[in-house]
Computed example of a mutant assay.
Amino acid sequence: MNTDSNNRVALVTGGSGGIGRAVAERLAADGQSVAVHYAGNKVRADETVAAITDAGGRAIAVTGDIADEADMTALFDQVEREFGGIDVVVNTAGIMLLSPLESLDLDDLDRMHRTNIRGTFVVSQQAVRRLRAGGAIVNFSTSVAKLQFPSYSAYAASKGAVNAMTLVLARELRGRDITVNAVAPGPTATDLFLDGKDEATIDNLAKMPPLERLGRPEDIAEVVSFLAGPARWVNGQIIYTNGGII
C-alpha cells in the first residue's frame, strides 16, 4: 500500500488553471509527483509544471479529451511510464454554461453532459483499473446543487450525476483500499468565476458565507490535499467546501 506522500503519484485533470492549478501545486508541495492534464491550453499547463519544478517538485504536462476512452487510456499509460504508477486521480476538469432552463440551448446541455459526466466517468474508469492500493479518487461537484441558484439547473444536474457516481463507486471498490469522494466548492475567486460579474454581484456572493469572503483556489486545494493523502477513513462523501453557506 502506497500512502507515503513522497512516493505518491497524482493525475489532476483540468490542472492548468484556476482550482486545478492550485490543486496540482498543493499536491506537489505535499510531495506527490503530479501529471498536469490540459485540454487546449498547453502554455498554461507548462507554466503550472514550471511552477512546480521550480519549487522542487516533480511534474509533467499531459493532454487529451477526458471524454474519449482512447485518449485517456494513452494518457494513463504515459503517466505510468513516467512515474511508475498512479495513486491519486483528481477530476477538476469541467465546464459551466448557464441559462434558465426554459431558454437553455440543448447543445450546451450536451456539452456539459459530455465533459462533466462522461469525462468524469471515463477518467474514473481508468482510475479504477489502475490505482494502487491506498489510492484516492477525488471528483468535483458543486455547492450549487444545494444552493439552487437560478440559471444553474443544467450545470447542477451534471454535478448531481457526479455525486451519484461518487457514492456508488466508493461502494463498488469494497476491499480495494481506494477511497472515492467529491469536493463541492461554493463561489470561488477564479478568473472564470469572476469574469462577467459586476462588483455588486461579487460583493453579494462574498457576504453569503459566515466568513464573509469568496473562497480561494487554495481553500479548495487544501481539502483535496486531505482527501488525496491522510484521509484514509473518509470515503463515499460529498464535502461541501464553501465557508459555511450551507
Results as ranks from 00 to 15, higher is better:
18 G>F: 06
210 P>V: 04
240 Y>T: 15
36 V>K: 09
164 A>L: 12
17 G>H: 11
131 L>F: 09
158 S>Y: 10
101 L>E: 02
181 N>F: 01
216 R>K: 15
135 G>D: 06
65 D>Y: 07
48 T>A: 14
99 S>W: 00
28 A>R: 09
89 V>I: 05
120 T>K: 01
92 T>R: 01
204 N>F: 07
112 M>S: 03
125 Q>W: 00
59 A>L: 08
175 G>K: 13
107 D>E: 12
229 G>F: 03
5 S>D: 09
97 L>M: 09
234 V>W: 00
125 Q>P: 00
41 N>T: 07
150 P>T: 04
174 R>Q: 14
116 N>V: 02
189 A>L: 05
74 A>M: 07
115 T>L: 06
129 R>L: 12
136 A>N: 06
217 P>H: 11
103 S>G: 10
146 K>V: 13
237 Q>F: 00
88 V>H: 09
203 D>P: 01
12 V>T: 06
89 V>T: 11
235 N>L: 04
48 T>N: 10
212 E>A: 13
69 E>R: 15
171 R>I: 10
158 S>D: 11
122 V>E: 06
112 M>R: 02
44 R>I: 00
1 M>I: 03
130 R>H: 08
148 Q>R: 12
221 A>W: 03
169 L>M: 15
130 R>A: 11
61 A>M: 04
108 D>M: 00
148 Q>A: 14
164 A>Q: 15
147 L>N: 05
240 Y>K: 03
63 T>E: 13
